[in-house]
């Protein structure tokens, strides 16, 4: 089943075309890498997929809902995490989960159950009363990811989730992403670490508002005769 379906998505700001006829789809349970240079139009497209911004034209369906008419339904079915927007630093770990669980309308008993389960998976049960601000960045990022999936969304959007994170934690983070995808939650991720692109099932690469390549990492490497995704990226961007 397709969890995201985009056909001829166009988004203009005045005369500037930020998204120029994007067409792609994402399968349920897939890890999809959304790559592109700065200014290529990734953030604009992500905002549209999250129901935060309306397209100028084109068809966009997310989790079975239409972004033009049902953006509020989309917001309930998605999770979102970025490097910049994280959790509340002055609240404890537990309080952060309560707060975001409440926002997504989960019953208190459900929030307790899922918080316990998610903290257990991270091995951070004993930290639940710690103030978030006192924890290492890597832990905060893992917690932010868990909070983003507390309501069991159909799809979770991760915007540069591992920026600035140490190399060991970065890899642990990707193991959590894999586990999540194995449970059927679709993962839509952007990153500037090209080695991470190889962990995705498929990646698309944007340039100047268009999707210029979309395939599995190994097919892209074959097609561009490249040793790794970084080379593919460079060949596309320097074209």
């Amino acid at each position: 089943m397709k969890i995201i379906e985009v056909e001829n998505l166009v988004k203009k700001f005045g005369s500037f075309v930020a998204n120029d006829h994007l067409t792609f789809s994402v399968d349920e349970g897939e890890i999809y890498g959304f790559l592109g240079a700065n200014g290529a139009g990734k953030t604009t497209a992500m905002k549209i997929l999250c129901g935060l911004s309306a397209p100028t034209s084109g068809k966009v369906m997310v989790a079975g809902y239409d972004v033009y008419r049902q953006s509020e339904m989309i917001k309930k079915r998605i999770g979102y995490m970025s490097q910049r927007f994280s959790l509340f630093e002055d609240l404890s770990v537990w309080e952060n989960f309560q707060f975001f669980g409440g926002i997504y309308g989960l019953a208190p008993a459900k929030i307790r159950e899922r918080t316990t389960e998610l903290l257990g998976r991270l091995g951070l049960e004993s930290e639940k009363n710690q103030i978030l601000g006192s924890l290492p960045l890597g832990w905060k990022q893992k917690l932010a990811f868990s909070v983003a999936i507390i309501h069991r969304p159909s799809i979770v959007f991760l915007d540069e989730p591992t920026g600035g994170v140490d190399p060991i934690t970065r890899r642990q983070f990707w193991e959590i992403i894999y586990e999540t995808a194995n449970q059927g939650i679709t993962v839509f991720v952007t990153t500037h670490y090209m080695d991470e692109a190889e962990y995705c099932r498929r990646v698309s690469i944007m340039a100047d508002g268009k999707i210029v390549a979309l395939d599995t990492p190994s097919n892209l490497k074959d097609k561009y005769n490249a040793a790794n995704i970084e080379e593919v990226f460079l060949k596309i961007a320097r074209n």
């Binding site: 240079a37 700065n38 600035g164 500037h192 990226f233 460079l234």
Partner: peptide, 10 residues
Amino acid sequence: TTGVDAVSRI
């Protein structure tokens, strides 16, 4: 180069 794409970093 933080938050900068692979090409601009190079």
